[in-house]
Amino acid sequence: MPRSDSGAPRAFSTLGALFAFIALGWRRAAANRAGILGLLALYWLILMIFWALWQATPLHELRRPGIDATRLFWYMAVTECVILAVGFPYRAVEKDIQSGEIAAALVRPLPYAAAILAEWIGATGYRLALLAVGGLLAGIWATGTVAIPLAVVPALVFSTVIATILALLCQLQLGYAAAWVGTPAPLFWIWQKLTFVLGGLMIPLTFYPAPFGSLAMASPFAAMVFAPASFLLDGSPRAILATLALQLLWLAVIGMATLLVARAAAARFAEQGI
């Protein structure tokens, strides 16, 4: 087994470096206090607006058993938590490519994509933890209850982690798109709108008319947003397993696609320069 300078097997040393980047992301997110407070304020504002909206909506006319304003509030607390925690970090990769700073990262023994993804995971983890606490407090204050069955909490946490990693992988691809299109902002806008609509950010995909609901649920966007929140609508073991299986499938597909995009970008830099 190849060993590093410190004597540890190379694979462990790479993992150690990635953990250092996760910690860096966490620390950087924590240092941005104004940003975090702004994010929390925005989160509460969105939740309160929709809470008022759901209360004013005759939801019983939908004839969907178990769907009420409280449940929809908690559904959206989860979807918005994922979206706001992820943010739009693709711009860091775009900036590195446009400025040429990526050259300094490419001459290190740690892959650039892995390092930046690890940093994003750290930063997103911090925001996710803080928004989760904020959402919980907002939910208790608004609805007077916690409409998350205790039995689904482990699956909800696991699914939320996969959802955010999926979204971060997509953002990494969007950042790398700068190698071909210069400014990937238009691609990001399209991706973001698809995430909102096909991910069921505000309304559960089960509300969508056929065949759009089924199509949206099979899409990767549902795995990024709808999946964890869906446990609040259907917490049966069968639904949870099916949702997690679909998420893991998308994780494999999007993970592979990200690897290919990163390799294609590196090949382009090698041919065309940075």
């Binding site: 300078d5 410190s6 150690g16 470096a17 250092a20 400025s99 050259a103 300094a104 990262a105």
Partner: peptide
């Protein structure tokens, strides 16, 4: 004209990250 250090971090933290990247004891 390009930096390999982390712009917002203290120099010492950049060096520590490089230690982890190159896995120096």
């Amino acid at each position: 004209q390009r930096s390999q250090l982390w712009y917002t971090l203290p120099v010492r933290s950049s060096f520590e990250l490089l230690r982890r990247i190159y896995d120096i004891g």
